[in-house]
């Protein structure tokens, strides 16, 4: 299995390490591949969109013509995972306080996402959450995190924090507002590997 990691901006190397550890913990063969261009989207079994600044990533996705191709692939069932900014990019609808929202999401997942919903850097925090089908609580890191406000039919909420959805799945798409790549716990990356195996 080869998991592509979108290498435009953000926590790219952290996801590489996390997937390598997840493969090891599952005792399976697997590799990661950095995805910088349209061509790199070939020969991967799943794609992770890392956290970073969604406005910067979306501008480059469009410039490189990768937005349309990712959209096409995911519509056909290609597995994709978004963390933080990645979740903003996956959303069909964005809520923003800005006069004009410059992030153009890929519009794939039937969720409404609010950017910077938990506040600024100083409001960043860590919190244990109960994720569906996980035995032990999961320590999640929230940094300038967005929030999944609404989900459409066919989207399953996997965990809540104070009545807000923080991780959700819609068939081949997994989205979360926290940063699983910044902790040693590999269960989220393993969950995505399972989705790739399943599809």
């Amino acid at each position: 299995m080869i998991i592509g990691i979108l290498d435009i901006q953000g926590a790219v190397s952290e996801h590489e390490v996390a997937f390598e550890r997840a493969f090891m913990s599952k005792n399976m063969k697997g590799a990661t591949k950095l995805v910088k261009t349209l061509d790199d989207l070939k020969d991967i079994d799943g794609l992770a969109l890392p956290g970073g600044e969604s406005s910067a990533i979306s501008a480059q996705l469009a410039r490189l013509g990768m937005d349309k191709e990712i959209h096409r692939m995911v519509e056909q069932g290609f597995p994709i995972m978004g963390t933080c900014a990645g979740t903003i990019l996956l959303a069909k609808r964005l809520i923003t306080d800005m006069d004009e929202e410059i992030t153009v999401p890929l519009g794939l997942m039937d969720i409404t996402v609010k950017r910077n919903a938990f506040g600024r850097q100083k409001e960043s925090f860590e919190h244990y959450i109960e994720i569906k089908n996980m035995d032990e609580p999961y320590g999640a890191v929230f940094i300038r995190a967005p929030m999944i406000n609404e989900v459409g039919e066919g989207v399953e909420s996997l965990a809540m924090l104070n009545d807000e959805i923080v991780i959700a799945r819609q068939s081949n798409m997994l989205a979360m507002v926290f940063h699983p790549e910044l902790t040693m716990d590999t269960r989220i990356h393993e969950m995505f590997i399972d989705i790739v195996l399943e599809i």
Partner: peptide, 8 residues
């Protein structure tokens, strides 16, 4: 998370 970006 500013890695790989430009700060102006």
């Amino acid at each position: 998370m500013q890695k790989g970006g430009v700060i102006m």
